[in-house]
Structures are given as structure tokens and as C-alpha cells.
Design a protein around this nucleic acid. Sequence first.
RNA 1: GGGUAGGUGCCCGAGCGGUUAAAGGGGGAAGACUGUAAAUCUUCUGGCUUACGCCUACGUUGGUUCGAACCCAACCCUGCCCA
Length: 390
Amino acid sequence: MLSVPEQLDILKRGTVTIHSEKELTEKLARGKPLRIKLGVDPTSPDIHLGHAVGLRKLRQFQELGHHIVLIIGDFTAMIGDPSGRSTTRPALTYEDVLANAKTYTEQAFLVLDRDKTEVVFNGSWFKEMPFMEVIRLNARVTLQQMLQREDFKNRVANGTEVRLHELQYPIMQGWDSVVVRSDVEIGGSDQLFNILVGRDLQKEEGMEPQVCMTLPLLEGLDGVKKMSKSLGNYVGLTDAPKEMFGKLMSIPDELMAKYYLLVLGEVLDTSMHPMEAKKQLAAKCVITYHSEAAAQDCREDWDLRFSKRDLANVELPLFTVSDRRDVLGVVQHAYLSVFDQTLSGGDVRRLIQGGSIQLNGEKLTDPKAEPAWGAGAVLKLDKKRSVRLG
RNA sequence: GGGUAGGUGCCCGAGCGGUUAAAGGGGGAAGACUGUAAAUCUUCUGGCUUACGCCUACGUUGGUUCGAACCCAACCCUGCCCA
């Protein structure tokens, strides 16, 4: 095991707050593996790079010999974390949650060492909790404390509803810490309040309070909002290599330094051309979640496809024109059969009129035309997608 | 429980008897320009094999009317004030 200052040096990297560093130092100094908690709510089946930021920090702890407790919030997911939300979360069914939990943990092990990770479901204790106990816990948090939270405060000020069950969320998350006896809890910076509640509850149960460690939130592809599935601005860990590469290439330049730090744990070399820097970012990410070969392939494909705009020499999905031979029908069918997307006639018409639909580089502007659909020709559908005619 | 203000398209919001598929913004899409970045400009943003035609849509259900997002009634939901 590394010395305490060496460990601290690694662990502090990329964090927003550590509350407190002194406590962390003391815990580390005992020389025993610490219990590091991260709670995740399986509200969607996929993990994205935003989640991976926390997982990477866990991985660091793991490599330093500490013990990871990954809490699957099957119960808390039913409530929905109100952190940073301006509206109540939609309710999920328990079956959804369980199904999500399965794929979720699978994906978490792309980052974490499976053998050194303890996975627990918080439903296992909450399901059995007597109502008296719930009341007792509630007595420990005041309404004023809750109302100090930015998200609740705003909602109250704006006249947006706040459901009472949402107020339970921090208490439940805090109780998780008591149950798993965590020494350190990791979370995004929006989790600060929730994690601090955990400290309070632990103290009241006569335990040593956990250290609160928060990490920056990773903005999504739009560069503004936090990466999230529901906003569609995410890069999934299981995204296909080319998709992952392409998504990363579309992030705003200003975000690159942050992505380097949080996604790769590296410092961006600002002397590099921004585009080259972004390509390397994308490639490294593909290497991490796929392979070196895949990354190489992505880069070559990218250069051909977008830098040289040489669609003819790029691997494209095949599409065979069937009975409908007019432009509108062909495009609609191509979207459906190749990309599994149902576009309305209006959608397709819009693309055609916008000049998006191109056959071998020639814009097709008449929805009803029936051009010669020669085999091997390249049909461009939109900015990112094209097919080869078979 | 009482009073009061509301519930409109993906979101916010205007409309308050016909010309309303519903202003404006946001978000999204496409094109041009590029580095599939940013910025900018243009266009589009209910459905129907585009049709001055039909269907669906303004919380729900009924009603008034030649005609309703708009008027009436009941119901459901939310905010605020009072209890």
C-alpha cells in the first residue's frame, strides 16, 4: 500500500470538495482498507461517461487497496433523486428498475474490478423497514434544511410542485451510509447535500462520519447541460466504437480540457490543434471501452468520411431498393430498415427539401422523382448517415 | 374545507366564438460556411404516397352554437392565500 501522502495525492485529483481532507488523512493513516460507497440509481439501462467519472474514482481507490461498496438504489430509484431537478421525476416500475440494475452493474464492471467490489441493493433494507423507524429518521432532518437546497428552494419559489416523497430521498441515501458503514462516499457535486445527510445520520448512530468526496459534473454533448440519458446528450459506455468516436468529436472545444481530465484522467496539451486533440480524446476513449484496433479503425474511417468526404470508399450499410422507387419512399424505407427509425412523410419531405438527401453527391430535391438507383451508389440521408445501394 | 389563479403543441408561453395546426421564444432537424466544433446566415419543426382535401390536437366528459382552445356545467389536477 502506498504512503498516506501518496494516496492523498492520487485521490484528490479531479475532486471538487473533500469534507474533510483531515478526516480522510486520519482514516487512511490507520492503514486498513476503507469502505468506499457509491450509490447509483438504475433509472435507465445504460451507463454513460458522466457516471463513469465516479466509477473511475472508485477504481483509483480500488487500486490503492480499498474496498468498494456499490449500492444499487433499487428502492431510491422509485423515488427519484430530486437533486438538480426542476420537476418531479417520472415514476418507474419495479420491473424496469430491476432490469436496469442488471445491465447497469454489468457496465459498471467495464471500469471497476469485479472481484474487489461489493454490490448491494438498498431495497434489501428499506423493504423491511418499519414505519416507526421511518418516522424516527425523519425526525432528524428539518424542513428548513431541505428548503435551503437550491433545487427545492427554486421549485418552491417558482410555484412548481414538490412532492413529499422527494424530501425522503436524502434521508434514504444517508441511511444507506449507516447500513454499509461507509468511510468515504463519492458522488457528483450535486450530491453534496445528500452525502452530508449521511454524515449526520452516521454521527447520530454513534459511527464515525464518512468523508464526503464530490466530483465535477460532466456536461453532455451540448456542452451546457449535465450529461444525462433523458437529455440525449450522453456517450454510453456500450456505444459502438464509431458512435462513441463521433459523439466525442461533436463536443464543443471548450469542454475538451474537462473531458480529458474527467474521462481520461489526463491533462490536455493545449499546444495541440483542437481537432487533433479531440481526435485523440475520442480515440483514447474508444481504446478504453473497446480496443486499440477499433480506435484505429474509427480514426481512419473518420478521416475518409468527414475530412476527405470520400463516402465512396467508406464502409456503409447496404440497402436494397424495393418496389417503391420514388425518392420519398426509398428514403423512408432506408431509415426504417437500416436505422430502425420511423420517419413520417413530412420528416422525409423536409430532409429532401433541405437538400440533405444526396445520391452520389447530387442533391435530390423532388420527392416524387424516380432516379436510377444504381447498385453501389451512395445515398446520403442526413449529416451523419448514408447507405450504399445494393 | 373556503377563497382565488390556472391546466395550450417536445418545453415555456400568447390566444379568449369563425381567416387557429394555433403568435413569440427555447429546444430540435436540414442546408450554406467549416474542423460532423464554435459563431453566423437560410429553411423546416402534428399525421396522411402534398392533398387550396381529410384526420388528430388546446386537462376530462357532456352542453350551447351554423361554428368552440375560446361560452356554460360537472369532474380531475396544480399554484397561491385562509383554515
